[in-house]
């Protein structure tokens, strides 16, 4: 693996150079929000951020995307895939938790049977430059409970670690190595690596929030009908904030839109928190109340995903904890379940 050391103030310059050859996504401060978005001309990346409010998954799985376009003609409707071919992109400054979300989403969208071309095309053409959390930014961070680590390179092609005076850049995949040319030629020495080890140990220690995520699956499975579920959802207002900000949530809806003779089929985010999500035309709803919906969300992340893909569908970023309008804390739910 190639490793380089770069000066701390060199980052912005590097991003600028990369931006000349690829579309760069990076955290940007937009009013009071830090958003992970495509850098526009003259826009400065915001690299002292904690984490972006929206998850970088949005690039691969956008809020809304065209699947298919069609036109009504005299001969009948003609249609064609509406997919724009993805451009080469570099996602710069992805936090390790969010980088890990790509690994989890790959499991779903890039299965042996039924590959999702919209996701895969963008994913394959993107290089992920992750920025390690030398000091995990939030008290709500719990990546180490869900197989992550503040310095993990999982899902990243390049991992940047702040060593104080300089950044250590590790090029973990061949895709990442294609960016080598931008990072100068100062090779990292053993001292830098040792320093990183120490930083990693310290960073993990700074994570104070721990949940028994790996242990709850059998307990959840056995307690599907437990009265536990009868009360936890009460304050949930059935908004989609937790799912829309989540880096691993991937449920979607497919809708058609037409204007005069032109139409398109879109896929839009959807949320298991919405009553309409599973409501059938007949009016029957297999998940009739927020109780079943909350159980579904919790089970999907901590039981079903592990069962199907051997991975917990949560990266511990804490967004749902911080931004839930009514403080319905998934950490507490998982912890409480583990005590059943």
């Amino acid at each position: 693996m190639e490793k380089r050391l770069i000066k701390k103030d060199a980052l912005t310059g590097i991003i600028g150079k990369i931006a000349q050859e690829a579309v760069v996504f990076a955290p940007v401060k937009v009013e009071d929000n830090v958003l992970f978005k495509a850098l526009e001309k003259g826009e400065e990346p915001f690299l002292t951020y904690a984490n972006s409010k929206n998850a970088p998954k949005n690039h691969f799985f956008p809020r809304s995307e065209v699947m298919l376009r069609y036109t009504r003609t005299a001969k009948g409707v003609e249609f064609a895939g509406g997919q724009k071919e993805a451009e080469a992109t570099v996602l710069f400054g992805v936090r390790p938790c969010d980088a890990r979300s790509f690994v989890l989403l790959d499991l779903l969208f890039d299965q042996e049977k039924y590959k999702d071309p919209y996701y895969i095309d963008k994913r394959q053409k993107a290089t992920i430059v992750a920025l390690a959390c030398v000091h995990p930014p939030y008290a709500t961070c719990f990546c180490t409970s869900v197989d992550g680590h503040p310095l993990s390179a999982d899902g990243a092609d390049v991992l940047l670690t702040d060593l104080g005076e300089e950044f250590l850049a590790e090029f973990v995949t061949p895709k990442g190595e294609k960016l080598l040319k931008y990072f100068g030629d100062v090779k990292a020495d053993a001292a830098a690596e040792a320093k990183k080890e120490a930083v990693a140990e310290q960073a993990a220690k700074e994570i104070k929030s721990h949940i028994p995520a790996r242990e709850v699956k059998p307990i959840m499975d056995a307690n599907f009908d437990s009265p536990f579920w009868n009360t936890i959802h009460q304050k949930c207002i059935a908004c989609g904030t937790c799912t829309y900000l989540c880096p691993t949530c991937h449920c979607f809806d497919i809708t058609d839109e037409m204007k005069r003779d032109d139409g398109r089929r879109l896929r839009n985010w959807d949320s298991c928190m919405y009553p309409m999500f599973t409501k059938e035309t007949s009016g029957h709803n297999p998940r009739p109340t927020q109780r079943e919906r909350w159980r579904q969300r919790a089970m999907h992340k901590f039981s079903y995903y592990p069962e199907n893909f051997n991975a917990i569908a949560c990266v511990g970023c804490g967004r749902c904890v911080m931004y839930c309008p009514v403080n319905l804390d998934i950490r507490k739910i998982v912890t409480d379940i583990s005590k059943l």
Binding site: A139, T140, T231, Q234, K235, V321, V326, N327, L328, D329
Partner: peptide, 12 residues
């Protein structure tokens, strides 16, 4: 009391 500092949360 909420699970985060300086928060309160609805309860039943």
């Amino acid at each position: 009391a909420g699970t985060l500092p300086l928060t309160a949360t609805p309860c039943f």
